[in-house]
Nucleic acid binder design. Structure first.
Lengths: 131, 131
DNA sequence: ATCAATTGCGTTATGCTATAACGTGTGCGA
DNA sequence: TCGCACACGTTATAGCATAACGCAATTGAT
């Protein structure tokens, strides 16, 4: 369950996401990588699955898109919940972590005897520049 | 921006959701309502759009599905953030609200000079029964 | 009363997102 | 060297959502 060398497709996908200003859909990634020999959606989705598993990429559930993690090193020792602000003007995504929210959620969920596997926190709106 | 009488399609869709154990996709709702004359996805999606606007229904972004709001009366005076636990075993969805989380998020977002329009908090895992 | 604007309806067609199912190739340990 | 695990590539299909058209009913200002 470590993080092996990335394969060619995984590197291409991570590269595309890292060099992008904002989040991209799997099909947008596909388009960007056609010149480099990526032809089918599955090639992208399979790479994304691994990158998600390694914590190098996040999926934004509310917009069906993906972003490169902004602090991949920290994810090696699995920081808990990741939250995002997503600007609907310029697409800028900001990732953040907060202990207080995490603990409060843990308390609430515990009260339901619910066992958390994946937590999604996404805030859509407009960033400073987009007013 | 009030809440007028529901139209036939809106009532049918809300009824289907209310009588369901768990969340349903738009296409599942469509299937349940074919006998009652609903034939096309758009009829369902248009009804859902209005029901979401009125606060009678929530969209679960992480699973592309919809649930009836469990406290529609409270939404008349727009309670802020709604959070959900979603059991991947039995599909049970529990809606909850928490002032502390809401305020903490407000602070963090303010720090970015970000203006929130819609907040999504969804926790997937397993409920008490599904261990 | 009438016309215009608004809103919902119904239909067809289409687009976007994601996965199923199949077979190939490659590396590596028993 | 056999068998397993894993990544790859391709075709096909499933699942989610909206565009664009025209019709009908309602409302409301003139």
């Amino acid at each position: 369950m470590g993080m092996p060398q990335l394969t060619r497709n995984q590197s291409l996908v991570l590269g595309a996401l890292s060099h992008s200003e904002g989040p991209m859909s799997a099909y947008t990634i596909l388009d960007k990588l056609r010149d480099q020999g990526v032809r089918a959606p599955l090639q992208v989705y399979r790479a994304l699955d691994k990158l998600l598993e390694y914590g190098l990429v996040h999926r934004l559930e509310s917009i069906n898109a993906f972003v490169a993690c902004t602090c991949p090193h920290e994810h090696e020792h699995d920081h808990g919940v990741t939250a995002f602000t997503i600007c609907e003007g310029c697409g800028q995504v900001t990732e953040f972590h907060d202990e207080a929210i995490e603990q409060r959620l843990a308390v609430l969920v515990r009260g339901q005897s619910f066992k958390t596997e994946k937590t999604t926190i996404e805030i859509r709106g407009h960033c400073k520049s987009c007013g």
